[in-house]
């Protein structure tokens, strides 16, 4: 809060061009974002990379810097300043942050494909090691069952031994 109060009155007094000369020199000097109370100038050249790590006070300072900048003729803004202005207003942070980190969709597709392949392999390998089906499931056995059922007159009213029956009886094979 202290920093905020300090930063507010000082900022409009500082001419934007001088602020940017200072910003550029601090970039070349290798100094990262200067603390807002000492010098309320933060280089705008790489706001995208460091925005998330800035404190609220520093973000406020950047907002104010950009506000001052955008009052100038837009043709005189550098591409970095334009990018910074766009990023701060509409970049993918805060409520516009992407729900999933990049690379999520390929990961999901790959995972699902892997699971389907594993399940298929498991299914056929288990079937390959299974015992043969029981002998009563063969077509011959089922036809013999039909003959035996007719011999015994099984289900004579509606079923296999009834008059005009044309169903398959016990045969389940095609």
């Amino acid at each position: 809060m202290q920093a905020l109060r300090l930063a507010r009155p000082r900022l409009p007094l500082r001419p934007a061009s001088r602020a940017f000369a200072a910003a550029a020199s601090s970039v070349h000097g290798g100094a990262p974002a200067a603390s807002s109370s000492a010098s309320p100038v933060i280089p705008l050249s790489n706001v995208e990379a460091m925005w998330e790590r800035l404190s609220a006070d520093e973000q406020l300072v950047i907002h104010q810097q950009l506000e001052e900048l955008q009052k100038k003729d837009w043709k005189s803004l550098s591409i970095d300043e334009k990018k910074a202005a766009y990023y701060v207003a509409f970049g993918p942070h805060g409520p516009r942050a992407p729900t999933n980190p990049p690379g999520t969709v390929p990961k999901v597709i790959l995972g699902v494909t892997g699971l389907v392949v594993t399940a298929t392999v498991l299914f056929y390998s288990i079937r390959a090691t299974a015992p043969p089906p029981p002998k009563t499931l063969s077509k011959e056995w089922e036809e013999a069952s039909n003959e035996r059922a007719l011999e015994q007159k099984i289900n004579p009213i509606h079923g296999i031994s009834s008059e005009g029956y044309s169903g398959p009886g016990f045969v389940t094979h095609k």
């Binding site: 506000e67 334009k82 509409f90």
Partner: peptide, 12 residues
Amino acid sequence: ARRVNDYATAVR
């Protein structure tokens, strides 16, 4: 957007 000095909105 130019009148209210907001470059980002103009891009948007």
